[in-house]
Amino acid sequence: MLASGRGSNLQALLDAQADGTLAPAEIVLALCNRPGAPALDRARAAGVEALCIDHQGFPDRRGFEDAMLAALAERGVEAVVLAGFMRILSGHFLQNFPARVINTHPSLLPAFPGLDAPAQALAHGVKVTGCTVHFVDAGVDTGPIIAQASVPVLDDDDAGSLHRRIQAQEHALLPEVTRTLATGALLCEGRRVRRRPPG
């Protein structure tokens, strides 16, 4: 799990691991790029190894990503879940985990990519928004879509209230997709993602 901040999505995954609903996926490392981020404390409290690799300690993105890749390889990591990780990953990183890096975003992509998606949704006056779990590519929220959940926009919503309701859906959807990824059941063909047929 890669995180940068509070780690609420990470907590949803940790909770799923604790109650057995994340299996066969297993969180072996929570890696954060910001020293002191609450996500690190959440992982430690759940008995999961927490590691900080500060991106500011490297002269370029390649060095930072190489340090992350080394840490992941050392622990035998097979897939990566971004849980509030606020750095764009390059093709150099992603080629080590083909179709095995996923992220969640608080909109129904391709609508409202990037920062402040709930505020973007309100500014555009949409009636329905939601969250998306997608494979990560080298763009910003542009990877193939795996799953989505919708959230109605209420007349009295502000960005904060809308985001909280979207997060509730993210906290359910991300563990479900993580579990499915771990079973090997996700098949990505171009931009289309489907479940492999049984057997």
Rank of each mutant, 00 (worst) to 15 (best):
L2K: 00
L2M: 08
A3D: 04
L10H: 08
L10P: 09
L13F: 12
L14G: 02
D15K: 10
D15S: 07
G20D: 11
T21S: 14
T21A: 04
T21F: 10
A23L: 15
P24R: 07
C32M: 06
C32D: 02
C32Y: 05
R34Q: 11
G36I: 12
A37F: 12
P38F: 11
D41P: 02
R42M: 14
A46M: 13
V48Y: 06
V48D: 04
L51F: 14
C52Y: 11
C52M: 07
D54E: 10
Q56F: 12
Q56D: 13
D60V: 15
G63Y: 02
D66T: 15
A67D: 03
A67N: 01
A70S: 05
A71D: 04
V77H: 01
E78H: 06
V80G: 00
A83Y: 06
M86T: 05
I88R: 00
G91R: 03
G91A: 11
Q95N: 06
F97P: 11
P98M: 13
V101Y: 00
V101M: 03
P110K: 04
P110A: 10
D116I: 02
D116P: 01
P118V: 10
P118W: 03
A119T: 06
V128N: 08
G130R: 01
V133R: 00
H134Y: 08
H134C: 03
D137T: 10
A138T: 13
A138V: 15
D141R: 00
T142Q: 04
G143N: 03
G143W: 06
Q148N: 03
V153N: 01
D155Q: 08
D156S: 05
D158A: 08
D158F: 10
G160L: 14
R164P: 05
R165I: 12
A168R: 06
Q169I: 01
P175Y: 04
R179W: 06
L181F: 09
G184T: 15
G184F: 12
A185G: 09
L186T: 07
L187E: 15
E189C: 11
G190C: 13
G190Y: 09
R191T: 15
R191N: 14
R191H: 08
R192S: 14
R192Y: 10
V193R: 00
